[in-house]
Amino acid sequence: MLMGLDEKFFEKFGIEYAPNEIIFCEFEPGNEFYFIQSGRIRLVKLIQNREKNLTVLTEGDIFGEMAILEEQPRSATAIAMDHVKLLKFHRDNFDALISGNPQLAYKLLVIFSKRIYDAKRRLMILLLEEPQLKVMDVLVMLAEQDPHLDMQNEVSLQVTAQDVARWAGITEDDAQKELTHLSRLDKIELFGDRIVVKKIREFQRLVSSRRKSMYQ
């Protein structure tokens, strides 16, 4: 929790939302970021005209933090799931805010560390040339992200062709084509809601050797 947050602080920055109320909407300009004091919010995004849940955030989490960095439209919609109490901070107050709240600054440091890695990892996928490799690397990335997976064994990933397409920056049709191909080679097994990779290490080695040769 944030240290030194008393009533006064909440009076100044506090804001409450009723269940199911939109906090901000995808594509609207974003100048504030939020700290959740209590309650849950969900982040959703319209993908191919369907509302897709990205994540659920709870007490102590921060969201909308990209607004600190740049003036870009929101990349997702935030919706209150229950009665939610938030602290809302404007980008312009950022410096003053973190000077007075090192705990908040530390939290942001952790978030940004993760974001930087995720963004870099995604970029590594996007920079690969062949769609086949991109798809493989998406699966490798997802396997890496789950600390419970045993990479020596067959891994099961909760992912659809649509998700793979989004990560790889290719069309859903192309993703489906590559996945089908891999499944025909018996490298993976396709299910409606998940993909089983027989030997993820093999993908990992292949992608990394291709990546190295890309620059030579």
Binding site: I68, L69, A105, L108, S113, L123, G169
Partner: peptide, 29 residues
């Protein structure tokens, strides 16, 4: 670092810049 907020702030600035650069590159690609 909590005892020394200027360190956090400095790091945060460095991280922010990195993140901004990467996100920009991602959009470009």
């Amino acid at each position: 670092v909590l005892k020394n907020s200027s360190v956090v702030r400095k790091m945060l600035r460095v991280f922010s810049n990195q993140l901004r650069r990467i996100v920009k590159m991602e959009r470009l690609v």
